[in-house]
């Protein structure tokens, strides 16, 4: 499946220094914005998977997300946090074109995947979603057997060889195999919520995507299931690039190496839209945020 060698993006981001939301991931040293900050965290050594350039998202006439610039790195867990309505789910659904069917949805700016716009004409959203998997807020197993939940997508994608092995591998990858190996033919709807969510992760990785987008994957789960999903993410990042949207700051702090904080802001025209306030190493963002708004959000929640 890796027939397409990704193009490594190593463009120096000179514009970054002009922006409030500093992207310290580029090759150039980041500019420390906060007085007293000793140094910015080093950029992750991996290549860039996603690069958002001046991304605006509209629903009809409404601007939902304004001017986002962001790079997401390979084999890194990136968290998106912020108050509800700040556009973090909109952005993550923009990354695999899940918003295409929403009426009035429109983007301007660039969403580049390995240097190529996923919104370019000629790019098939079906191919985008096949490369960039997604797990949703509420577990959504199909009303089929556990086996068929996993095997369904490989079948339609023509990955029919060694289907049993593929199913097992996916279930092992999602740390679910031992729990379900004896009842692969029973309905997936009989699983617990946490198991269902791991099944959805297994379903997503069974077609070997490069990226996993997790849209508040644990918000409908109990603490134990949440912990098991978080453990799982650490294993998965060896293989996949993970973007997780969460409203739970502790969760972001626990799992993510990099965190983007979004907020609702108006650009002086009275219209509020989601903006990227700050994007940095998770530790830095939580302990030494560069922006007042980040500090307010982070301390407000923790304090």
């Amino acid at each position: 499946m890796d027939a397409n060698e990704p193009e490594v993006e190593r463009r120096d981001d000179v514009m970054a220094s002009n922006r409030l939301q500093v992207d310290s991931s580029s090759g150039a040293p980041a500019v420390p914005l906060v007085i007293g900050a000793k140094e910015s965290a080093p950029a992750p050594p991996t290549e860039v998977v996603f690069e958002l350039l001046d991304l605006n998202v509209y629903y009809g006439e409404t601007l939902a997300v304004r001017g986002v610039n962001l790079k997401i790195h390979k084999n890194v867990i990136t968290a998106m946090i912020g108050p509800s309505g700040c556009g973090k789910s909109t952005i993550v659904r923009t990354l695999n074109r899940m918003n295409d069917s929403v009426s009035g949805f429109r983007v301007s700016g660039e969403v580049n995947y390995h240097g190529h716009s996923i919104y370019a004409s000629g790019v098939d959203p079906v191919e985008v979603r096949r490369r960039i998997g997604m797990v949703f807020q509420r577990p959504n197993p199909f009303p089929k057997s556990i086996y068929d939940n996993i095997a369904w997508a490989p079948r339609i994608l023509g990955l029919k060889r060694d289907l049993d092995a593929r199913v097992e591998q996916a279930l092992r990858g999602a740390a679910l195999w031992d729990e379900v190996k004896d009842r692969l033919r029973s309905s997936a709807l009989g699983l617990s919520g946490g198991q269902q969510q791991r099944l959805c992760i297994a379903r997503a990785i069974a077609i070997e995507p490069e990226v996993l987008l997790l849209d508040e994957p644990a918000s409908a789960l109990d603490p134990i299931s949440t912990a098991s999903i978080e453990d799982l993410m650490q294993d998965l990042k060896q293989t996949y690039t993970i973007v997780i949207v969460t409203h739970n700051m502790q969760q972001a702090a626990r799992v993510a190496e990099r965190t983007a904080f979004f907020s609702l802001d108006d650009a002086g025209d009275g219209k509020r839209a989601g903006v990227l306030v700050e994007y940095d190493e998770t530790a830095t963002l939580f302990t030494r945020p560069a922006d007042e708004r980040t500090r307010g959000y982070v301390t407000g929640r923790f304090g």
Partner: peptide, 10 residues
């Protein structure tokens, strides 16, 4: 969610 789940799998 089911329809989205299927589309998200490509």
């Amino acid at each position: 969610e089911l329809k989205d789940g299927a589309l998200a799998l490509g």
